[in-house]
Design a protein around this nucleic acid. Sequence first.
DNA 1: GCGACAG
DNA 2: ATCTTGTCGC
Length: 209
Amino acid sequence: MSRQSTRIDLEKARRIQMFIAKKVLEEDDFDAPIKYVGGVDVAFKSKYSIGAVVVLDFEKLNVLERKFYVSEVNVPYIPTYLAFREIRVMVGAIRKLSIKPEIFLVDAHGKCHPRRAGEATHLGVLLNVPTIGVAKSYLTGRERADGFIVDDNEVLGYRLKPNVYVSIGHKVSLQTAIEIVKKLTVNEIPEPTRQAHIYAKEVKDKLII
DNA sequence: GCGACAG
DNA sequence: ATCTTGTCGC
């Protein structure tokens, strides 16, 4: 017997996200000054997902280490439940790192999520590491004239550029997260996630399936 | 019921 | 995200 997708229990997944959201620490809790920063992304090829993580020197922005982890995926993409499809390979790749970054930038929203538990937050709470969500498009909330994304009188994130949405993941304040992302930006997309994306595609293209 | 919807 | 050819521009 075969199945293309294992449908997840959305009710259960929603409860997990609500639990994750309660665990989030919205204050800076990492060693400063930051020396190493991680970037995380995921690519797909046929029925496999490739988690990729890179570690950059926070000041020089050069890549110091790169790791990947491949796994079969059966979970479909369902808006607001992205983490249940991608987080496994993200964790797999991060566990292979020898350098431990003070903080990670994740290619997805964090708190800027209907239940305040986007993938960046999910990953941070799960691994108990500081994370920042860096998404490339809109998911939820209303954009104020000053660029902040709000919902129910709560600030969820900030639109730094047309295609760069910043929100906290875990163990960092939004203000600090924005400062960090700005400092890591030389191109349109901040270096950590940009490099992670490049590496994910590199691995994907070399992958023989 | 309708529209919106990260990667 | 992935599938894809040619095409525009620095």
